[in-house]
Amino acid sequence: MSDHRADRPHEVRAFFAARAAAWDTKFPDDGPAYEAGVAELALQEGDRVLDAGCGTGRALPALRAAVGPRGTVLGADLTPEMLRAAVEAGRARHAALLLADVARLPLPDAALDAVFAAGLLSHLPDSAGGLAELARAVRPGGRLALFHPIGRAALAARKGRRITPGDLRAEPNLRPLLARAGWDLIRYEDEDARYLALAVRRG
């Protein structure tokens, strides 16, 4: 299955760099959806969580509220302009921000209890490798939430496209992809109101 971004992560960076300054104003009403998505991780006070591909950091306040002051919240993104927008929006106070490729995280094995990833999967140059890297960084029994504030059909319509059978986010494609990377898919939702795939790190 080919992906036009496969060998060009700089194209992903360039795409988001050009849109970073206006990103939050383009999607001003997504806050409650992000809060609801974060809630699905069932985080506990003191947990260690990563927002993978955090962008402007819209999930960071909810992640911090969930893990409390003793918890650890990290936000990692490939695009400096997105992280700068997160700082300008005041979200850096909720997390440590990392300029990092989520396919090569600067974290030890099993360092995290959970990962939240909004809109990440379609931007990973190597989807299987990226999911395996997230699995490496999460302890056995830890959780992964692949999230988007609208579902696949609504997102495709917004972009003037149609859903294709090869879409990695479709459950029949996603379940085996996650399994090969060390995750068990335990919940899948794809509705107009949101997309959520919740997985648990195998022991």
Score class of each variant (00 low, 15 high):
Leu120Arg: 01
Gly71Trp: 11
Ala193Phe: 09
Phe116Gly: 07
Gly151His: 00
Leu105Glu: 04
Tyr34Cys: 10
Ala76Asp: 07
Arg143His: 14
Pro125Phe: 11
Leu196Ile: 05
Arg143Asn: 10
Thr164Ala: 15
Val138Asn: 05
Pro80His: 00
Ile163Arg: 10
Arg175Pro: 07
Arg136Ile: 09
Val38Glu: 08
Arg48Phe: 01
Ala170Met: 12
Arg93Ile: 10
Trp23Glu: 11
Leu97Tyr: 06
Ala128Arg: 13
Ala156Thr: 09
Gly55Ile: 03
Arg48Leu: 02
Val67Trp: 04
Arg93Phe: 11
Lys159Asp: 15
Asp190Ala: 05
His148Ile: 08
Arg194Leu: 09
Leu198Thr: 01
Ala42Lys: 14
Pro176Glu: 13
Arg139Asn: 07
Asp126Gln: 11
Arg187Cys: 05
Pro176Asn: 13
Glu40Gly: 06
Asn173Trp: 02
Phe16Pro: 06
Ala89Cys: 08
Asp101Phe: 00
Leu63Ser: 10
Ala137Asp: 05
Phe16Ser: 05
Gly130Phe: 01
Pro165Asp: 05
Pro69Gln: 15
Val12Glu: 11
Arg162Ser: 15
Glu81His: 07
Ala137Val: 12
Ala197Pro: 02
Arg64Thr: 10
Pro140Phe: 14
Leu146Tyr: 06
Leu155His: 14
Gly119Ser: 12
Ala17Cys: 06
Arg64Gly: 03
Leu185Met: 14
Gly182Val: 11
Glu11Lys: 06
Trp183Lys: 13
Val87Ala: 14
Asn173Val: 04
Ile150Glu: 12
His94Met: 02
Thr56Lys: 05
Ala193Ser: 15
Ala17Asn: 14
Asp167Ile: 01
Ala199Phe: 02
Ala117Cys: 07
Leu124Ile: 11
Arg158Ile: 04
Asp24Ile: 03
Ala85Ile: 02
Asp167Thr: 02
Arg5Thr: 13
Arg58Trp: 00
Asp126Glu: 15
Asp167Ala: 12
Ala20Asn: 06
Gly75Arg: 01
Ala95Gln: 08
Gly53Glu: 07
Phe116Pro: 05
Tyr188Cys: 09
Asp113Met: 04
His123Gly: 06
Arg180Ile: 08
Gly37Arg: 06
Glu11His: 13
Ala14Met: 12
Arg161Thr: 09
Leu121Asn: 04
Ala110Cys: 12
Ala36His: 12
Cys54Gly: 10
Leu178Tyr: 03
Leu97Asp: 05
Glu133Pro: 08
Arg48Ile: 03
Ser127Asp: 09
Asn173Thr: 04
Leu196Thr: 03
Tyr34Gln: 13
Arg104Cys: 13
Asp51Leu: 08
Pro32Asn: 13
Leu177Tyr: 05
Glu191Tyr: 00
Gly31Asn: 04
Val200His: 09
Gly119Glu: 05
Met82Arg: 01
Arg5Asn: 12
Ala111His: 05
Arg58Ser: 03
Trp183Asn: 12
Tyr195Ser: 02
Arg194Tyr: 00
Thr72Gln: 13
Pro176Tyr: 11
Leu124Ser: 06
